[in-house]
Each structure stands twice: as structure tokens, then as C-alpha cells.
């Protein structure tokens, strides 16, 4: 029935779903044009998964922050600092579990400070986390003395970065686990609803009994924790903690979130979209490398894609 099809098409939210369409188109395009460059080989695809894991994981948490109408620019720096504290703890001989604990705690603590400054002192999150980005990066440099801190714990290296299970990189497992948890939290839990309501209209949320300050604390601690995990994964992959980890990641993460369909104006968010957004950026970067383009061109393309995505996904202006 054409009328029914027409109806479904009309109800289909192009704005929210643009990322999926774009992703499929990008995949098809590269599959054809880069066939002989080995784009579709298993190795290359797994490589993409490996390269995008950290951005995806941080993106999942960032989705909550942006959906609540806040922003967190400190994630890249937090990843670096957590990598360093984790590596230092292991270097001190306290073992893998203590190191994981210290690494996560580092991120959560910074998230807590971010949340506290935003909710209690009422400084806009853009400023708080911009400052925190510098403070934490500086701290990471200072603590590491600007030199890499080697990690030799084999178990750690396996579980946090370099391992493969059944031929699938462990990083992909991490991505999937975090994405599934994030998706359920945002879509189906009370916390997720309250996060979206906080971003959609904070006053109305408060008047409806939502403790928006707590929600914001929680989302910042969430990005802190996930940035820490990403940092630990960087460390595991490169078998060392370095202060340079995650440099510029905050922008890639935000780009993935926005590309995925989460609204920068709060109230709307999708974890699945974020992960697809992240993988899409990764795929394009990968394809550009296969085509022989370099970092400078990657950056330009990435910027253009973000503008296009936001332009196409823009909400129609109401009269």
C-alpha cells in the first residue's frame, strides 16, 4: 500500500537517523572504491574497531553529559592521567587490580570535581572542563616527568588493549560491553530518563522531582570513569603510560556524539548513534589512509563531515 509506505516515511525521523544512512553509504562507497586496497578484509575492519574503541567508549559517557546539556572537555587529559596513575601503581609493585582501581578512581575523582564545580559553584561546564583539561594534562606531564612509564604486566596488557579472544580484539569487547550498558541506561533506566529531562528543561525536571544536581554529578563521574578506562586501554595497547595519550580526543568524542544524533542543546541522546558516529569517523580516517592521504587531509575531511552531518540533521525551523 503506497499510502502506508508514505506514512512510514513521513514518520521516519531523518534528523535522528542520518548517521545510520550516512554510515551505510560510506561503507558501500569505500567497499567499492577501495576494494583492491583491502578495505573489506577482516584485518582492516578489526583494525578500525581497535582504533575507534577509545573514542566510542568515551563517547558513550559523553552522550549522557551532552544529553544533560553539559559538556566535558577534560576527557582526553583524564585518559592520559589515568594511564599514568595506573602505570605508576603497577611500577610500584602493587599489582594489576590495585592499578585498575587507582586508574578508575583518578577519573571518577576528576569527574566528581568537575560535577561539583558545575552544580555547586555554578560555573558553566565548558569553562570548568576546559580549565580541568589543562590542569590534568599538566599533572600527567608532571607525574610522568614527560617520559613513558612502561607496563610489563602481561595480564594487564592482554585485558586492556592488546589481547585477542577468538580472533577478535579485546578492545572490541570493551566497546560492546560499554555500549550495551550505556544504551540500556539511557533508553530504559530511570537515570537515563532523568538525564534527558535535565537536559530538555532543567526547571521542569526539578519541579517534577528530579535531583538535577545529582544527575549532573553522575554524568561527569561517568565521563571521568570512561575516560579513565580509555586511558588504561591506551596504556595496555602501547604497553606504557604516556602523558600524550588522548590528546585532542575530546573533540573526536564530541564529534562522534553529535554526529550520532545527540543534541548539543540537551534533551535528546542516543548511545547507539554515538558508537556508529565514532566508527564512521574511524572508517573514513582508515579509508583516507588506505587511499594514501595523510593526517592533515584526515582532519579536514573530519571537520567537513561534522558540518555536513549537523547541517543535514538540523531540526527544521518552526514558523
Amino acid at each position: 500500500m503506497p499510502s502506508k509506505l508514505n506514512d512510514t516515511l513521513k514518520k521516519f525521523d531523518w534528523r535522528q537517523n542520518i548517521v545510520y544512512i550516512a554510515f551505510v553509504l560510506v561503507l558501500i562507497y569505500f567497499s567499492i572504491t577501495l576494494q583492491e586496497h583491502g578495505f573489506l578484509t577482516q584485518d582492516n575492519l578489526l583494525n578500525i574497531a581497535r582504533q575507534t574503541a577509545m573514542i566510542s567508549i568515551m563517547g558513550v559517557a559523553m552522550t549522557f553529559v551532552i544529553a544533560s546539556k553539559e559538556i566535558d572537555l577534560s576527557v582526553g587529559s583524564v585518559a592520559a592521567l589515568s594511564a599514568i596513575t595506573t602505570a605508576l601503581t603497577m611500577q610500584a609493585g602493587l599489582g594489576m587490580f590495585a592499578a585498575i582501581f587507582v586508574g578508575l578512581l583518578t577519573g571518577i575523582l576528576i569527574g566528581f570535581i568537575n560535577g561539583y564545580l558545575v552544580t555547586k559553584i555554578a560555573i558553566p561546564s565548558f569553562l570548568v572542563t576546559l580549565a580541568m583539561m589543562m590542569v590534568v594534562r599538566g599533572l600527567a606531564m608532571w607525574m610522568s616527568g614527560t617520559s613513558p612509564i612502561p607496563i610489563i604486566n602481561e595480564h594487564y596488557i592482554f585485558f586492556f588493549g592488546s589481547g585477542n579472544v577468538l580472533g577478535i580484539p579485546i578492545l572490541l569487547f570493551w566497546t560492546i560491553i560499554i555500549a550495551v550498558i550505556g544504551h540500556f541506561l539511557l533508553r530504559h533506566s530511570i537515570f537515563g530518563r532523568q538525564t534527558l529531562a535535565t537536559g530538555g528543561n532543567e526547571t521542569a525536571a526539578i519541579f517534577s522531582g528530579v535531583k538535577t544536581a545529582r544527575i549532573k554529578m553522575a554524568v561527569f563521574m561517568g565521563t571521568g570513569a570512561m575516560a579513565a578506562l580509555a586511558g588504561m586501554l591506551y596504556a595496555g595497547r602501547l604497553q606504557a603510560g604516556r602523558f600524550t595519550f588522548g590528546d585532542g580526543d575530546e573533540l573526536s568524542v564530541i564529534a562522534a556524539v553529535i554526529l550520532g544524533g545527540t543534541s548539543l542543546f540537551g534533551g535528546v541522546g542516543t548511545v547507539v548513534g554515538t558508537v556508529i558516529g565514532s566508527i564512521m569517523i574511524g572508517t573514513i580516517n582508515n579509508a583516507l589512509i588506505l587511499q594514501g592521504l595523510d593526517v592533515s587531509q584526515q582532519m579536514m575531511v573530519q571537520g567537513i563531515i561534522i558540518i555536513l552531518a549537523v547541517a543535514f540533521g538540523r531540526k527544521k525551523k518552526k514558523v
Binding site: R193, L196, N201, A204, G267
Partner: peptide, 14 residues
């Protein structure tokens, strides 16, 4: 009173 960008349902159950 409302999160205007959210659905009837989401507002009602908030």
C-alpha cells in the same frame, strides 16, 4: 511544567 521537546508519555511519567 513540561519538557517541550519530549513526548507526551515522557512528560507524563517524569
Amino acid at each position: 511544567g513540561l519538557v517541550l521537546g519530549h513526548s507526551v508519555k515522557e512528560n507524563m511519567i517524569l
